[in-house]
């Protein structure tokens, strides 16, 4: 049997690194991952929020932030986000 890695084990290995979070709506975040729980609620620091609209992208800088896992769609480890 090959050892199976669980999805959240991969995210656990991202703690301390930057991560790109894509929400179900038109919203994305990047930041350094400090931790998360079983609901994939995430604590990020040095965060940028991207609100993506037809008129352009609005960026907001945030300090330490707890992101509700409810509306998270995808996670991209090690990425600086939509502008890279």
């Amino acid at each position: 049997m090959s050892s199976q890695i669980l999805p959240l084990e991969l995210i656990d290995r991202c703690i301390g690194s930057r991560i790109w979070v894509i929400m179900k709506g038109n919203r994305e975040f990047t930041g350094r991952l400090l931790g998360f729980d079983d609901f994939v609620n995430m604590v990020l620091e040095d965060v940028t929020e991207f609100e993506i609209t037809p008129e352009g992208t609005k960026k907001t800088a945030l300090a330490q932030t707890l992101l509700n896992g409810n509306n998270i769609c995808m996670l991209i480890p090690g990425s600086e986000g939509p502008e890279t």
């Binding site: 400090l34 931790g35 800088a61």
Partner: peptide, 28 residues
């Protein structure tokens, strides 16, 4: 207004307590 990114003020002081997890519960 959103405050600017915080300087890392943890480095010069002793390492964070062993209880530091960065978890949502701890943040809250």
């Amino acid at each position: 207004m959103a405050s600017p990114p915080l300087p890392d003020d943890r480095s010069p002081v002793p390492p964070p307590p062993p209880s530091f997890t960065g978890s949502p519960t701890e943040f809250l």
